[in-house]
Design a protein around this nucleic acid. Structure first.
Lengths: 218, 218
DNA sequence: ATATAATTTTAGATAAAACTAAATATTTGT
DNA sequence: ACAAATATTTAGTTTTATCTAAAATTATAT
């Protein structure tokens, strides 16, 4: 696989939302910042190689082999993102571009050992699940913290209320995007939550919890 | 810089022994497993870009800019090798191919942080010095352990005697290629050495020391 | 329902990096 | 010194991944 082929496969995977829904030529062109005619050329090639299903004018979808290939790339991308954040102290919003390059490195052994070095992480810094070596990808959902069942764990990926007082509260309590949060207990009385974040156990009101988005992987 | 251009620059750097001695078209072609005519094409391009000096039929040498570029690549290559060996437990003879790919990743920040993560190593797993960020490369020499001055440190890179008994001795004393050895003291009486290796202090005879090659960086 | 708009494909061209075969320059051996 | 051998360059092709412009197909809007 060439670098360019890999980029197309990943784009088709993401535009098709991981499923095998059909993706249009124009959508690919726009996403990849290239021309539709270039896309047509490439999808013919990928089709001949058995990576995608293609019928003229009808869009494309990944074959099983294509999906497997895409998942390998996604696995590499997300593992490298974990490496950059956990080991090299990049912040979660700085890693994409570099991981985009690193994901093309060809060495199965490298990926296996990187995985081990990182402690077999299940999710990347954005809370997205990392496909297993054999290409299984857990589903994940975005939920407000107050809707998350007790015992589950997720990555903080956004806020509903983005006014200064709320953001100041988060800052003061050392809660940041990219942090992993575990719901320890919910008070029946007021719906307030005991959560674990960065090795600390803290208590937050229902109101706070209702304004924090988590990404939860089953 | 394209990937291909970078490979040429690195090859010219190595064939020119890091200096600016002249390198022939054929030598480059042989080293890179390509045809001389392809090399001619590329060196014209590199010459136009100011990376090399080129006079038809007279071979090429790196300009100052070209040398700087090569040293950046060498730096990246060697840092990645340290990463692979120190962090991912690759053995020192498995790392070249992967580092060859990793060295092309473009991100100055990545290199800086990798360097920090590794503890600012001075040499790679083969004992070769790592150029500094601003392109300064320490010299290194290959010496027999018994010829090394007391106090200096080097990486074990080979044996003079490769018979079974000697290799068994090394194995038994847990001395392996790639290990860093520090010479602590030399006994005047018999020339035997006290050395530090892998946090252990051991005592070896002059005879043993005369059969171990070290790479020493000044 | 059909003209118009949007999308997609085809045809032909370009740039990068390689190649082959032939031409030219340099080096070497006597 | 100069013929033969070797090294290098030139000229013309190929492959990959692009592009533009034009043609073909599909979607949409009245």
């Amino acid at each position: 696989m060439t670098l360019s082929e890999e980029d197309y496969i990943k784009t088709i995977y993401h535009l098709g939302k991981g499923g095998n829904s059909s993706v249009s030529t124009n959508a690919i062109a726009e996403q990849m910042d290239t021309k539709p005619s270039s896309v047509t050329d490439m999808i013919k090639k990928l089709s001949e190689k058995g990576l995608i299903h293609y019928r003229k004018y009808k869009g494309v979808s990944l074959t099983e082999y294509g999906t497997k290939t895409a998942l390998t790339l996604v696995r590499k991308h997300r593992l490298w993102e974990v490496f950059l954040v956990d080991k090299l102290d990049f912040s979660w919003d700085e890693v994409h571009e570099v991981a985009e390059q690193l994901e093309h490195i060809k060495s199965e052994q490298l990926v296996d050992r990187l995985d081990r070095h990182l402690g077999y992480p299940k999710v990347d810094p954005h809370g997205d699940p990392i496909p297993s070596k054999d290409g299984v990808l857990k589903k994940s959902v975005k939920k407000l913290l107050n809707e998350v069942p007790v015992g589950s764990e997720g990555v903080c990926i956004g806020v509903k209320d983005s006014t200064a007082p709320f953001l100041r509260f988060l800052d003061k309590n050392n809660i940041a995007l990219g942090d992993t949060i575990t719901v320890l207990e919910k008070e029946e009385f007021d719906g307030s939550l005991h959560i674990r974040i960065k090795e600390r156990d803290i208590h937050i009101s229902d109101r706070i919890a209702a304004n924090l988005y988590l990404k939860i992987t089953e």
